[in-house]
Nucleic acid binder design. Structure first.
Length: 670
RNA sequence: GCGCCCAUAGCUCAGCUGGAUAGAGCAGCGGACUUCUAAUCCGCAGGUCGCAGGUUCGAAUCCUGCUGGGCGUGCCA
């Protein structure tokens, strides 16, 4: 072969992703034609259709305009002076001026043979590592984690792992909600309602019950207060609808009136639903004599809870002691779930950590004239927003925004990051917009602050995912169910193996865990993070098509071949076997393998894990086809057999590595 | 009212800063197990890319308007 060092000492091109390599080859050619070439280089991309080769450059068309020549002519000029003969076949100009590139087989082979010998599969570390803080998960420790926490946790973890793999200095920080009203609620609940034996037996469970109880009582009083106003509103809106209906009937063809009527009707429906909800909350308490009694005794519970919170924040010894007692319990409980998911953080600096810095933040912003008092609250007014960011309430309390500012300040002092990523749902977009704008005014204008937003997890009815009774779905139950279903499939498949079952009960259980957790994570990661997605157990654990299981299955097949063939993988890697790409399926697989780096680059471009899942799915598909069409162990010759074994090994390693970056594990046998 | 987001095949979704005949998976139909795991593979069928204009050599992609939906909107996080 010998082609792999053809350009040897020239650059680190050997390890660059293919796209980057191709772009560097185009750069000098384009620079000889025009001044600004970066946008044009972006127009080199993987071919959409195999008929157009492996890569295509679409830059001749826009260039033709500037140069006042025909696109075909421009394309031909570029091709004529393009130096790619070592890595591509002769480039072709096609259609309206597309340049089609097909990689040479010997170049592909050289790439692969290099990857075989490299622990990192030939993926280089970035030349200029950045320090990046990734802020994700961030649950309220006082509440059990629920379905709403999956996306932030899983997406954040995948971004963290991927950034780390490509060589950045990444710091993960779980910004726990450990200091807010939730703790005031628990403290109040503990002081008034605790069942001591239950607390001694299962403290977190009892704290959870207290939290819910206090919440219910607060909701009750709020509902009692709010209902009359809502009913009055409903009456007004119904009268409005009646008036609009008359108007509409008088002018049935007037579209505007029709729309006004529909809007009014919709408002009525919304208000009616709201009233029902409030009545439901009231009824739930009043129909239960014990709850009703508690509600009467604790008429002032809302204010009392705020008071407990305020006392905690003010350093009240009793409340602080309770907080110190509860927090480790809650955190340990939370840790259990993270352990199951295989997620760790470099730091868990919760809201409480920043408590001492909040007053200074407000003071500093005020001193710099960035904040001023308005209606008794300290506000930062921003030109691009109608409403200010409030950093201290009328009553003197600090807010989420204040803590976030203190957090930015701390992170900048402590870690001097180049970038901070907040993996938080899209509803907080405006909050982060204001936060970042304020931070920049405050002087943090060098760091890149980014809100990595994501959509809501919906139920199959298209509404935010809830249980049938309307409660949020606990994360732990979700995991259990995923594993239960995975187990059923694993057992079923094992039972139906041609040679009879191969797995022990323990193995099945272990596999079910890996497969179940993977299914849950993958369902999330494979969707574009910015869109809402419909959660479905059936789809998630379908275990076929574009799922983690399909990849895990592909991986298991690679390992199974080694086992059946008694192949020592270490020996295989060091033996220097040549890779032979004779069948289409082999070349397709080879091309896909070599594009791992491209996939990582693209996935990180906009922090979209679904780019990586799409790559892995495509790789697994190419492997399945190869597996189907090319005998490995019974290959026609030793040379082909070795070549194919090496391809299997590379595929297995790439799948394992790719899934690892998504926080998903593999199993040798399933 | 204002602001942000969304609308692509029966269903769930991709579609990268505008590029060649819009792609997957599921569901449907038809094939392939004496075979390294059939959790697979091959084929067929299925779309006026919400509607109407505009920008351009070229628009699912950019702009405007409209329709339908979601979310946010001064002291929650």
């Amino acid at each position: 072969m010998g082609g792999r060092c053809r350009r040897g000492n020239q650059s680190n091109e050997q390890t660059m992703s293919i796209l980057a390599t191709l772009r560097e080859r185009f750069r000098p050619v384009l620079l000889s034609l025009v001044d600004s070439v970066d946008d044009l280089l972006e127009m080199i991309r993987p071919a959409q259709d195999a008929r157009f080769g492996d890569y295509q450059a679409n830059l001749a068309m826009p260039l033709a305009k500037q140069l006042r020549q025909s696109p075909q002519e421009v394309a031909q000029r570029i091709v004529d002076s393009l130096q790619v003969d070592d890595l591509c076949e002769r480039p072709e100009v096609a259609g309206k001026g597309f340049i089609n590139l097909r990689l040479r087989c010997d170049w592909l082979v050289a790439r692969l043979e290099q990857a075989v010998r490299d622990e990192r599969l030939g993926i280089p570390r970035v030349a200029a590592p950045r320090t990046i803080v990734v802020d994700y998960s961030s649950p309220n420790v006082a509440k059990a984690m629920h379905v709403g926490h999956i996306r932030s946790t899983v997406i954040g973890d995948a971004i963290y792992r991927t950034l780390q793999f490509v060589g950045h200095h990444v710091i993960s920080d779980n910004h726990l909600g450990d200091w807010g009203t939730q703790f005031g609620m628990i403290i109040y609940g503990y002081k008034h309602f605790v069942a001591e034996p239950a607390y001694r037996a299962q403290p977190v469970r009892e704290l959870g019950r207290l939290y819910k109880l206090v919440q219910q009582l607060i909701d009750y009083h709020a509902a009692v207060r709010e209902l009359p106003e809502r009913e009055r509103q409903l009456g007004d809106q119904q009268a409005h609808v009646a008036a609009q209906r008359d108007a509409h009937q008088a002018h049935p063809q007037d579209k505007k009136l029709g729309k006004i009527l529909r809007d009014a009707q919709q408002q009525v429906a919304e208000t009616a639903a709201k009233c029902d909800e409030l009545r439901g909350k009231i009824a739930a308490v009043e129909h239960d004599p014990q709850l009703a009694a508690l509600a009467r005794e604790h008429a002032d519970i809302e204010r009392a809870v705020l008071d407990q919170t305020a006392r905690l924040h003010a350093g009240d010894l009793e409340n602080l002691a309770l907080w110190h007692e509860f927090l480790p319990l809650c955190k340990a409980d939370m840790r259990r779930i993270y352990d199951r998911l295989g997620i760790t953080f470099d730091h868990e600096l919760g809201e409480s950590f920043y408590h001492d810095r909040l007053a200074a933040v407000v003071q500093d912003l005020t001193a710099r004239d960035l904040a001023r008092t308005s209606d008794g609250a300290v506000c930062v007014f921003l030109p691009e927003y109608d409403t200010p960011m409030i950093i201290r309430k009328q009553d003197g309390a600090f807010l989420y925004a204040t803590t976030d500012l203190a957090t930015i300040q701390y992170r900048m002092e402590q870690w001097q990051p180049d970038e901070m990523l907040y993996v938080v749902d899209h509803r907080q977009g405006e909050h982060f917009g204001k936060l970042f704008a304020t931070a920049r005014l405050w002087g943090y204008d060098q760091v890149t602050l980014r809100h990595i937003s994501f959509g809501t997890v919906l139920g199959e009815d298209g509404r935010p995912y809830r249980t049938r009774s309307g409660e949020v779905v606990g994360l732990e139950g979700l995991l259990d169910e995923a594993i239960r279903r995975a187990h059923a499939v694993v057992a079923d498949n094992d039972d139906s193996k041609p040679g009879g079952p191969e797995l022990s009960a323990e193995q099945r259980q272990e596999i079910a865990q890996t497969v179940g957790h993977a299914a849950l994570k993958y369902a999330d990661l494979s969707h574009n993070r910015t869109s809402d997605y419909v959660f479905s157990y059936d789809k998630m654990v379908a275990l076929e098509g574009n799922t983690a299981t399909y990849m895990q299955y592909s991986y298991a097949r690679t390992q199974s071949i080694f086992q059946r063939g008694n192949v020592q993988v270490e020996t295989l890697r060091t033996a220097g076997h040549r890779i032979l790409l004779t069948q289409d399926a082999e070349r397709d697989l080879a091309l896909e393998l070599v594009q791992f780096g491209d996939a990582l680059d693209k996935s990180l471009e906009d922090y979209r894990p679904n780019v990586l899942t799409a790559y892995l799915f495509s790789l697994a598909t190419k492997f399945s086809r190869f597996y189907q069409q090319c005998d490995v162990l019974r290959a026609e010759s030793e040379a082909v057999r070795h070549s194919r074994l090496v391809l299997c090994d590379l595929t297995g390693r790439t799948i394992r590595q790719g899934l690892a970056l998504l926080g998903i594990g593999v199993i040798d046998k399933m």
